[in-house]
Design a binder for these strands. Structure first.
Lengths: 234, 234
DNA sequence: GTCTATAACCGGATAGAC
DNA sequence: GTCTATCCGGTTATAGAC
């Protein structure tokens, strides 16, 4: 396969055109939704020819990839203050998750389509794919910091897998949020509250020596899960 | 919206045409994959005109819905003997899950696309949608029988939610399987073994009176999750 | 009212000239 | 790096046959 064109743009003008297309696309997605926005419209509104839009973005879906990166960066920035001050695990976790949802909110409708393509194992947008690797890594790291920057002590073996576990959990929350049509996403917020509570409790329980067999089973399970990512043959 | 055409076919000839299209479609999907199979090809191979295929199936995706129903029925049949004989929870659960994977195996490649559309909240194929309701209900019931037909005693409050929990879990296994490219799906089978072990352990732990607060939290969480389904506003 | 066929439409994607 | 012209396949409109 070819390298992502994105990496190959050299000139200033190119950069400008690229970001003009991306801005226009995101704006139009927000306004009219993903499906109803055609590549022709994006190109037209951005003042470029259709073929030119495809020069910068392989496909309509690749515009989503760019969207990933952008909201991730926003999320990081929006979390920084909280992670700086707060030392309790539960508010750290809840805060980071809530901030994530808040960051995505303007794109709620569009996010449905996003997850749609994300679930396809052949899609480069799938969060487990190589192309998603950088964002995924950073995102997992963020959850590592949520735990390690807190007062809570976690057994070493668990700590090795916990960031990935929480990252998976956070994908689950996003999936729920996508389906959530309740006013002000009240349901999602209740879910975050409740599941966050459970997670913190479970971490406590898992640190109890009596629970060591269960913990070890769970860790083995996650190790198994995680390998999937690095083991794509074709 | 119009009613599903599927329900309106009255004549014998119609039924025949319909099933000819479906057979051809599934066969071609298995052979060449979902994306590479065009509606034109299906129609041609089935010996009908393109428009006619659309008379019987609203869209290409609706062919998938039919596929759901069919494999579910097959799965039920394949499980019956096991559920009749076996009384231990763990082999019951593992057996049912393994049989499910075995039933889907011929469609592994195609299943990726399936989940792709299934993840879209607006798609009728999404396992949480109204249109999927009958199959979902039956499927949840099946997992209820896995537990209730076993020797294991489960607290009543937990028993009310456990079938749904296990159904969700089984979706997770399928998602993993879709991404699994290991020989003979060795990874998926390891995952089933390990996660099944944990589930059975957790059910045991959850029945311990000391764990009652955690159990109650977990149940509240699932109740919250489940409501999502019945609460679509638009 | 049930079914079948033909001819478009529409939008994502590509080829190739400049 | 940008354009125009074109392909391709999902979907729809519509006319009519049984």
């Amino acid at each position: 396969m070819t390298k992502a064109r994105t990496g190959l743009i050299k000139t200033d003008k190119g950069q400008q055109t690229r970001s003009a297309i991306l801005e226009t696309a995101l704006e139009t997605f927000r306004e009219h939704g993903y499906e109803r926005t055609t590549m022709r419209t994006i190109a037209e509104r951005a003042g470029v020819a259709l073929g030119n839009a495809y020069y910068y973005f392989h496909s309509k879906e690749h515009l989503i990839q760019a969207f990933y990166g952008r909201t991730h960066a926003e999320h990081l920035a929006a979390c920084a203050a909280l992670l700086e001050k707060e030392r309790d695990l539960k508010p750290r976790l809840l805060g980071v998750i809530r901030t994530k949802i808040a960051t995505l909110e303007p794109y709620h409708q569009f996010a449905g389509k996003l997850f749609k393509t994300a679930a396809d194992p052949h899609s480069p947008l799938n969060p487990f794919s190589d192309e998603s690797d950088p964002v995924r890594k950073e995102s997992i790291e963020l959850f590592g910091e949520v735990v390690s920057g807190s007062k809570t002590k976690v057994p070493k073996d668990l700590m090795a897998e916990l960031p990935y576990m929480i990252w998976l959990y956070h994908l689950g929350i996003i999936l729920f949020w996508i389906h959530d049509r309740s006013p002000r996403r009240a349901r999602t917020h209740r879910l975050i509250e409740r599941s966050g509570d459970i997670i913190v409790k479970l971490i406590g329980i898992a640190s109890n020596p009596l629970m060591s067999p269960l913990r070890k089973s769970a860790i083995r399970l996650i190790v198994e899960l995680r390998q999937d990512v690095s083991a794509r043959a074709d």
